[in-house]
């Protein structure tokens, strides 16, 4: 996994609540057995005017000029501003894969759905929870100022606005550590091999019916 330490990027405001993972990446693209290449189909049903299917040449498809990601001023955006309960619905990790492939490095929202939130950290994307009013402020400023960039520093846990004002955010220490160092979660867990084996031995005694079916 790619590490996340510091990132300065253009913000794009996606002004709707309860954006679900079906919207982030529609199911027809889940048939792929790969981890990459989902970016062109991020928000497919909102982004294009026609119906998308895997294998299409997305560069030839009619884009929806009213969808915010298609506004020329947000081209190259890498910080997604979102509303309540972002990423609800299906557990598909294809959602963060699509965001990452598109170039999104951080998502800022008042709340996230639990599974999506967790999946982001596994893919080098930083989901940041800020209170409703602060998110609202960022929405307003982004919409009002073309080229509005946010500077996110994970080590310091800060977001610096273009006017130099700093917003602090919380992040759980273990997640921060993994993301800062781009660590492989499985590798970390395997370091606790002895504890796992000990637990397993004891579990075998307590619940022998769960072994060797």
């Amino acid at each position: 996994m790619e590490a996340f330490t510091q990132h300065t990027g253009l913000a794009v405001p996606l002004d709707r609540a309860n954006v679900d993972t079906d919207a982030i990446i529609p199911k027809q693209f889940l048939k792929s057995i790969k981890r990459s290449g989902f970016g062109p189909n991020l928000f497919d049903e909102w982004r294009y005017l026609d119906h998308g299917e895997p294998g299409m040449d997305n560069s030839k498809r009619p884009v929806n000029p009213d969808f915010v990601l298609n506004f020329p001023r947000y081209k190259g955006a890498s910080v997604l501003l979102a509303r309540e309960n972002f990423g609800c619905g299906s557990s598909r990790e294809h959602a963060p894969w699509a965001l990452e492939d598109y170039g999104i490095k951080a998502v800022i929202a008042p709340s996230f759905a639990d599974i999506f939130f967790n999946n982001c950290f596994k893919n080098g994307i930083l989901p940041i929870i800020l209170d409703h009013d602060t998110v609202d402020l960022l929405f307003k400023e982004t919409e009002a100022n073309e080229g509005y960039k946010l500077d996110i520093n994970l080590e310091q846990q800060t977001i610096t606005r273009p006017n130099g004002e700093v917003i602090n955010f919380d992040v759980e220490p273990d997640r921060k550590h993994s993301l800062l160092n781009g660590l492989d979660d499985i590798g970390i867990t395997l370091q606790q091999e002895a504890a796992i084996t000990a637990y397993e031995e004891e579990r075998k005694k307590r619940a022998p019916w769960l072994f060797n079916n």
């Binding site: 557990s91 598909r92 990790e93 967790n118 999946n119 499985i186 395997l190 606790q192 796992i196």
Partner: peptide
């Protein structure tokens, strides 16, 4: 509970998950 693909792999490899 539902998990993403990285955690499916994590369970396959370790039979465990890191959780809060």
């Amino acid at each position: 509970f539902g998990v993403g693909t990285s955690e499916v792999e994590h369970v396959l490899a370790t039979q465990c998950l890191r959780q809060k």
